[in-house]
């Protein structure tokens, strides 16, 4: 497999694929953070999470077109506005979905799975009707174009660096929200013991709704980031949902650190293997390794040891 390449070429290949893996890692982390928060909080497996991401991507696409045609002088900053709007709109839709559908299905995981899958199909059709079946792409501002040449063969694109910085900022924000704020304490209390959380005065329904909205909002930002590395179509979210579930389960659903470590491992493995094998084989091998590890360690990579 490696014999066709010189050692210098192999170093360059691993460096380039490693960096491509880091961008994939960023999207995985953003997607998985939202999914893990929702799953950890409510035990809801949100099959429509990919479609929330794509909503964020379409909002970014709409703003890109709007600023390009109507406000070209502000085009260089549209991406920041797009991320904020993507968060607000997807979070609002998330809150609506929680209120209108998910809250009626708590403690019924299979029904929730089916209902959110149905929602994903509805959203896909809505996107198809509104934006058409063809994939669309955004125009990036000039400062996001170009790359930093490291060697003759290795270049680091600016947009990739931006996505990684964005991911870092969001991961740190989520950490502070969940572990350093009063609201985060309420979320963790509800996760551990819902009836008891209510009995200490926490409005668990309100916490559920806000958490679902935040999880979906982060998916919206993931969608904005996604537009920098791929084009957006009605079913694009489906490509990422399985991998994201893999990240959440492999990392341990209750662990933020586990989610990040798992996203890094899976994205790097896939990205590197994709170069030497096919994309499908890379996914199959990753899945096999993850399943093997989960058989030995079903709680995922990270789990707390405490007296309950």
């Amino acid at each position: 497999m490696f014999s066709d390449y010189t050692s210098a070429e192999l170093v360059s290949i691993f460096a380039m694929q490693g960096f491509a893996g880091l961008i994939l890692f960023s999207v995985f982390v953003l997607m998985a953070l939202g999914l893990a928060i929702i799953f950890g909080q409510m035990g809801v497996i949100n099959m429509a999470h990919g479609e929330f991401m794509i909503l964020g991507a379409y909002i970014t696409y709409l703003l890109s077109s709007f600023f390009e045609n109507n406000l070209p002088s502000l085009f260089s900053i549209y991406f920041f506005l797009a991320m904020i709007l993507a968060f607000i709109v997807t979070a609002a839709l998330g809150a609506l979905v929680e209120w209108g559908m998910v809250r009626h299905l708590y403690r019924r995981p299979l029904d929730t799975l089916l209902a959110t899958w149905g929602l994903s199909l509805i959203l896909q059709q809505v996107y198809r009707s509104v934006f058409g079946a063809r994939e669309v792409g955004v125009t990036l501002p000039d400062w996001m174009m170009g790359s930093i040449p490291l060697t003759d063969l290795v270049e680091i694109p600016f947009n990739g660096v931006f996505v990684m910085i964005l991911t870092f900022v969001i991961a740190v924000s989520v950490y502070f929200l969940m572990f350093k704020s009063r609201f985060g304490g309420q979320v963790r209390a509800v996760v551990q013991n819902r009836p008891m959380a209510g009995a200490v005065g926490i409005n668990t329904q309100k916490v559920d709704r806000i958490t679902f909205a935040i999880g979906c909002g982060i998916a919206g930002i993931a969608g904005s980031a996604f537009t920098m590395i791929g084009s957006t179509g009605p079913t694009s979210g489906q490509l990422y949902i399985v991998d994201t579930f893999l990240v959440v389960v492999f990392g341990g659903a209750a662990s933020l650190l586990g989610t990040i470590a798992s996203a890094f491992t899976i994205s790097q493995a896939q990205s590197t293997m994709e170069f030497f094998l096919s994309g499908s084989m890379a996914k199959v091998l990753t899945l096999l390794v993850v399943v093997g590890i989960l058989m030995i360690r079903p709680q995922g990579l990270f789990a707390l040891k405490i007296r309950r």
């Binding site: 013991n193 409005n203 309950r308």
Partner: peptide
């Protein structure tokens, strides 16, 4: 306010965080 059988404290949270849940 309620102190349940078996205590049911939030075991993965710190002592301070546990008490703070009561400040809601």
């Amino acid at each position: 306010a309620f102190v349940p059988q078996g205590r049911m404290i939030f075991s993965t949270m710190t002592v301070k965080e546990n008490i703070e849940t009561g400040l809601t």
